[in-house]
Computed example of a mutant assay.
Amino acid sequence: INIEISQLEYAATHTFLENLSDLSTSIILEITEREYVAKKTVITDFILYAKSQGYRVVLDDINVHSHLDAAEADELGIIGVKISYEAMKQLPMPSFQRRLTRFDAKMAAINVDVIMEGVSEEAQVVRLFDLGIKHQQGYYFSNQETTP
């Protein structure tokens, strides 16, 4: 279930999740927003609440050099972080590779999956796999226009 940061403080969001709590171990919550730093307390409180209800949490649109460190991810008990390939490809390729490799190693050490989203061609799949990124998402795997 994808939840925007603006929805984290709604009573209706909490009621919705409480009504689904019997299924929580089968549901992953994806918190989507690029400005984690501005709402850090709200996000932290919500993640701890969701985990107390039995949900697993993935953070979306993480930037591999500023928003989240391994200690914080470990403390929160999130299971994955999603990184946008589009945002990262604005960096020179050697810099992108170094940052991604370091970030992936830190997350792997605490059993947090790194998921690269926005993968649209085979060359990206191969390059990312060579860098150790096994979890990938994007049009390369399922293009909306060709999916019935």
Rank of each mutant, 00 (worst) to 15 (best):
R127I: 15
L128I: 11
M116A: 11
S120G: 13
R127S: 15
Y49A: 04
A108Q: 13
S120L: 04
E72N: 10
K82C: 09
E75Y: 10
V114G: 09
P94G: 01
I79N: 07
F103D: 02
Q124I: 10
M107A: 01
I78W: 03
D74S: 12
K51Y: 05
V126D: 11
F46T: 03
F129K: 15
Q97F: 01
R56L: 13
H65S: 14
S52F: 10
D60N: 08
V57Q: 07
V81I: 09
D113A: 11
K51G: 11
M88G: 00
E117P: 08
V58Y: 14
F103Y: 11
I78L: 10
V114Q: 04
K82S: 07
A123S: 14
D130R: 13
H65N: 14
I110W: 00
A73L: 06
G118W: 01
I62Y: 00
E117M: 10
G77A: 02
I83R: 06
K106D: 12
Y49M: 03
R127F: 15
E86R: 03
D113Y: 07
G77W: 08
K106Y: 07
A87T: 12
V58H: 15
D113F: 12
L91I: 00
D74T: 08
P94L: 03
D61N: 10
S120T: 13
Y49W: 12
L68Y: 05
K106Q: 14
N111L: 07
D113S: 13
S52E: 14
H65I: 12
M116F: 04
L59D: 01
I110L: 00
I62T: 02
P92L: 09
N111H: 11
N63I: 13
I133C: 11
V58L: 15
A70C: 07
E86W: 01
I62P: 00
D60G: 03
L128A: 08
G77K: 01
F96G: 00
K89P: 00
L48M: 15
Q90H: 13
Q90L: 12
L48S: 12
L91W: 04
L131W: 13
G132H: 11
S84W: 08
K51M: 04
P94N: 02
L128Y: 10
I83M: 12
L68F: 08
Y55I: 04
R98N: 10
L76S: 03
F46K: 02
Y55Q: 04
F129P: 13
I133W: 03
M88A: 02
I83Y: 06
D104K: 15
I83Q: 04
V126I: 15
P92W: 06
D104H: 15
N111T: 05
T101D: 03
F96T: 01
M116T: 09
E117F: 13
D130S: 14
V81S: 01
R127M: 15
S52I: 13
D104I: 14
I115S: 08
V125I: 14
G118Q: 05
A108P: 05
R102H: 12
V114A: 09
R98Q: 12
G77F: 04
I110A: 00
V119H: 07
G77P: 04
R99K: 12
D69N: 08
N63V: 13
K51C: 09
G80F: 01
R127Y: 15
D130H: 14
I133G: 07
L100N: 00
I47P: 01
A70G: 03
